[in-house]
Design a protein around this nucleic acid. Structure first.
Length: 818
DNA sequence: GGCTCCCGGGG
DNA sequence: GTGTACGGGAGCC
């Protein structure tokens, strides 16, 4: 008797059982328990396009490749008519015995004389399954079949059929956040081989816990003492098993916490078999380490925030404190982790505050995950890929998989990824980007900002730009050609391309949602807003995708045409603004900054209306805002302002700062400090004299050796062994001397050094901070290579040159020099 | 000017 | 695992 269950799939893997691939869908049932749904009704396949449309099915069906493991063979073939970039093609769908046979067999036949092309041979089996079966993760599905007896941490259901049951979505998955503290000396590399985990915190709905394996007096009830590191790891496993999270989340847990726990578990010969199928946590080390658990979605919330919403944040840095401050208005506890090893060894009464700190990090991580979840969930639903993968994808991949998911509806075969030679060629291809009207550096009043709503997406859609519509056979080059003489391309005027169709769907879906949001401000707001934001992020990435060298649907001609149209429209706005008597201050890509010059805000809004009356399709110029004052920062050299470097002050007095570079740890404190203070003085107080005097005073203090040594120390990490360096930079030379002194210096050590006076190259003048007396540092180096570069661009804006910053206070600036 | 190296996040 | 990984700045040669 067949049974039915309803469940929300979260993630999937596949396993080979008796020579056949079985999909394991992990999820949560409608009544809230974890479940694994098995589906063995899906076969691996890929496409072969034979030369001259000759049917080579018989020959293909005979392929059988023996190996030590299972043989690879063709199970069957099917002749199909598909489309490739809009054109019909005859193809053979080749089904294989196993997923792993697909690349094996493709490798054999790709060079056959009778084979023209092979396609879709590199699509992970699980993704192929989700696409072909139209299964969208997190959406309610109904499975028909029966429960199976199988070793597992949850019920296992063997499905004969799976279909979407409704549009219900798992909006509140069970989230568990965790964080570890390790024993580690701050001057040495983090070393999982050597140093134990000393505490581990967990935070979730109804769970609040810190495990620690040294005892101290405390009244905190969430602290639980254990006897050893291995017991701590056991407790971690047990807690996960009891809590049964859908999502296990950490901050940089792909790169730190989970690999660390894995290394320590290996040391203690403990298995981390926390998968729902008792499988071990899997650490995959490529360029970027990732960690996966079968049945539990590992969410590294840092990665998502940095990759997907980073661009919309103000913060320079993505450390937990900065990100939590901006997104949650919460902070990390202010404790000095450098003191943790000593507290651990000698001062147990101080461990309590570190436990609180440890728990707080889990709380922040949990709150960030919950805050991001609506966006993540919407992205998952739009793209059709599980949370785990969406978490680790960049924009181009999100776009690509969104197109991949939709391609079957258009009967399109996906183009292959470019291979090495092609990739090299594509990397070399350049094209003209956006138009930038460079601002004259300086301070301005009464600034009005307009921008095109989603400029590139609306151009792509309004002009029907895509790899299947470009230079079509049916239209001449007159109707829809690019406005730029250098780009002689046209786009079909009769048939809508499938990429414009897909993009238009995203744009119109977003517009509908924005309309709904305007009307009803209820509890649905958060997820509707997340949804429109996800749609926007994805839509905005299509243009970049077409020009991205790794893309399957790469078309640099399309990308070029889009920017050409972009330049055309922005020029139109600038020209018209000038004609109507506005002063055009600055323009970049899709925005125009005007100053009122006696005109009113109303005049400005009327201006936008007249532009909009002439725009095609979905295109629209929007009024972005009014700013009583603003400052534009200059480029390093030359009379014009730097692109994308400015600060505006709103009517409320808040600052909007764009384009100032991140200051990194291999800068001295004095450089970071001066940059921050100068920005503060100029942007908040608009007092350029004061800023100049401030820098001069710092320069003078450096010359007079009044700046403490601590402020001029530069930190650089050794990446490999000293002997392996071909080029010995300053930090390598210092590391060598440290080693000669008998210190244990290796990859990961942070080398601190101070550049001292002299005429030699820098590395020969770099010394340990403790070797240097207060007056020995090279003031000129710190002035010219640290402090000045940090603020030079800011001062160029307001008419000061590097030399002005270097002038001593006694010298006076030449009046009327310009 | 080209090549090499380091940054990020985590402790 | 039917995939794959970045981009910018500084110092040396």
């Amino acid at each position: 008797m067949a049974e039915k269950i309803q469940f929300f799939p979260l993630d999937a893997t596949y396993k080979v059982v008796d020579g056949k691939a079985v999909i394991n869908l992990y999820g949560r049932t409608i009544d809230g328990s974890q479940i694994t749904v098995l589906d063995s009704n899906f076969e691996p396949y890929f496409y072969v396009i034979p030369k001259d449309s000759i049917n080579i099915s018989e020959k293909l069906e005979k392929i059988r490749i023996e190996s030590e493991n299972e043989p690879a063979f063709v199970a069957r073939t099917e002749a199909v008519i598909k489309k490739f970039l809009g054109k019909e093609v005859f193809a053979i769908k080749v089904y294989t015995n196993l997923p792993s046979s697909v690349p094996t067999i493709r490798e054999v036949i790709k060079d056959w004389d009778s084979v023209s092309l092979t396609h879709e041979f590199d699509i992970p089996f699980v993704r192929r399954y989700l696409i072909d079966k139209s299964i969208t993760p997190l959406v309610l599905h109904e499975a028909t079949g029966e429960f199976a007896n199988q070793i597992s941490r949850c019920a296992v259901f063997k499905a004969e059929e799976i279909a979407q049951a409704s549009t219900d979505t798992l909006h509140n998955p069970k989230v568990l956040a965790f964080d570890i503290e390790t024993y580690s000396h701050f001057d040495l590399a983090i070393d999982a081989e050597k140093n134990p985990i000393i505490m581990l915190s967990l935070y979730g709905d109804g769970l609040k816990k810190v495990f620690v394996w040294k005892k101290f007096n405390t009244g905190i009830d969430y602290v639980e003492f254990v006897d050893s590191e291995s017991e701590l790891i056991e407790k971690f496993k047990e807690a996960i098993n009891n809590y049964k999270p859908d999502i296990l989340t950490g901050y940089f847990s792909d790169g730190f916490d989970l690999p660390y726990i894995k290394t320590r578990a290996d040391k203690h010969k403990l298995s981390l078999d926390i998968g729902l199928d008792y499988s071990e946590l899997r650490v995959k080390s490529a360029r970027e380490t990732t960690v996966a658990i079968n049945g539990i979605t590992h969410l590294d919330i840092f990665k998502f925030i940095k990759r997907i919403i980073g661009g919309t944040l103000e913060t320079y840095s993505y450390d937990l404190n900065a990100v939590a401050s901006e997104l949650l208005d919460e902070k990390k506890h202010n404790v000095s982790l450098a003191e943790l090893p000593d507290a651990w060894d000698n001062r147990h009464d101080e461990l309590e505050k570190f436990c609180e700190y440890n728990l707080n990090d889990s709380i922040l991580t949990y709150n960030l995950a919950v805050k991001m979840l609506p966006t993540i969930i919407e992205m998952v639903k739009i793209v059709g890929i599980p949370i785990y993968d969406v978490n680790r994808m960049g924009f181009s991949q999100l776009v690509e998989w969104y197109i991949m998911k939709q391609a079957p509806q258009f009967n399109e075969i996906a183009p292959n990824k470019p291979h090495y030679d092609e990739l090299q060629q594509r990397r070399l291809a350049t094209y003209q980007g956006a138009f930038v009207y460079e601002p004259k550096p300086g301070l301005y009043k009464d600034i009005v900002v307009f921008d095109f709503r989603s400029l590139y997406p609306t151009i792509l859609s309004s002009h029907n730009i895509g790899p299947d519509t470009i230079d079509c056979g049916c239209c001449g080059d007159a109707a829809k050609s690019s406005p730029d003489e250098s780009e002689k391309h046209w786009f079909c005027g009769k048939r809508k391309g499938f990429i414009p169709i897909l993009l238009e769907e995203l744009i119109t879906r977003r517009m509908r949602i924005k309309e709904i949001i305007k009307e009803e401000h209820d509890e649905k707001f958060a997820f509707l807003d997340a949804r429109q934001n996800s749609l926007k992020l994805l839509a905005n990435s299509f243009y970049g995708y077409l020009g991205f060298f790794g893309a399957r649907w790469y078309s640099i001609e399309c990308a070029r045409s889009i920017t050409a149209w972009g330049r055309f429209y922005i020029h139109k706005v600038i020209g018209k603004a000038q004609k109507e008597g506005f002063f055009v201050l600055y323009s970049d890509t899709d925005s125009v900054f005007l100053t009122l010059d006696g005109k009113s805000k109303n005049d400005a809004e009327g201006f936008a209306g007249s532009i909009n009356a002439e725009l095609p399709g979905l295109m629209e110029l929007e009024y972005e805002g009014f700013y009583p004052a603003g400052i534009f920062v200059s480029a390093k050299i030359g009379p014009f302002g730097a692109k994308k470097k400015y600060a505006l002050m709103s009517e409320l007095g808040t600052l909007k700062i764009k384009g100032f570079e991140t200051v990194r740890r291999n800068w001295s404190l004095i450089a970071k400090d001066v940059q921050e203070k100068v920005l503060g003085i100029i942007l908040r107080e608009h007092d350029t004299k004061k800023a100049l005097e401030y820098v001069k005073s710092v320069v003078e203090d450096l010359r007079g050796k009044k700046i403490a040594i601590g402020m001029v120390v530069i930190h650089t990490q050794l990446q490999k062994d000293i002997l392996d360096y071909a080029n010995k930079g300053p930090h390598v030379a210092v590391a060598q001397r440290l080693r000669n002194k008998g210190k244990s210096i290796g990859p990961g050590s942070i080398i601190k050094y101070v550049v001292t006076q002299g005429n030699d190259i820098i590395r020969n003048r770099s010394k340990l901070p403790e070797e240097v007396k207060e007056n020995e540092y090279d003031a000129d180096y710190y002035i010219n290579n640290q402090v000045i570069p940090a603020v030079e661009r800011i001062f160029n804006v307001i008419g000061y040159k590097k030399e002005d910053l270097l002038e001593t206070k006694e010298q006076t600036k030449l009046e009327g020099f310009f």
